[in-house]
Amino acid sequence: MNPKRILLAADASENARRAASYLGKIIGSRKDFHIQILYVIKYPDKDLFPDQEAWQKKKDELVHTASNVLKKLSELLKQEGVPVSSVTAISTEAEGFSVAQTILNHQKKNDFGTIVVGRRGVSKAEEFLFGSVSNKIVHYAKDCAVWIIE
């Protein structure tokens, strides 16, 4: 595990922006770190849409959102002093149901020693019904550090 390879799990929320900002402040201008911003796109189920066209439109919107978020978070890291050459940004499609599992698989496959993720704080009832990406990462992460930014 390489702790200086940091995976920043991103989505379109304010929490992800907060996590990026925190990470930028910690790393600053140090050149011996590599940060990868990962946006996992979870395409909505086809069942939610009356036709293929409406579904495709939603998928396109999500890809567009992911691209915008990655640009904004990269810019934010740059503003905090992180060298541009130390940051990469990618989006990927969720594997199966779980965004958390997709992040963990990516971390393992690419030897990231640290995962950084924002947390919005959900009620117990919400966690039961919908689950929580950050809690699942904390629960299932192995051979890496997890930073939760609240």
Binding site: K42, P44, D45, F97, V99, F128, L129, G131, V133
Partner: peptide
């Protein structure tokens, strides 16, 4: 009925 699947897709059924 169906929903926008969340991180725990079976939570509603289990509840």
């Amino acid at each position: 009925y169906t929903y926008e699947f969340a991180e725990n897709p079976f939570g509603l059924d289990i509840f």
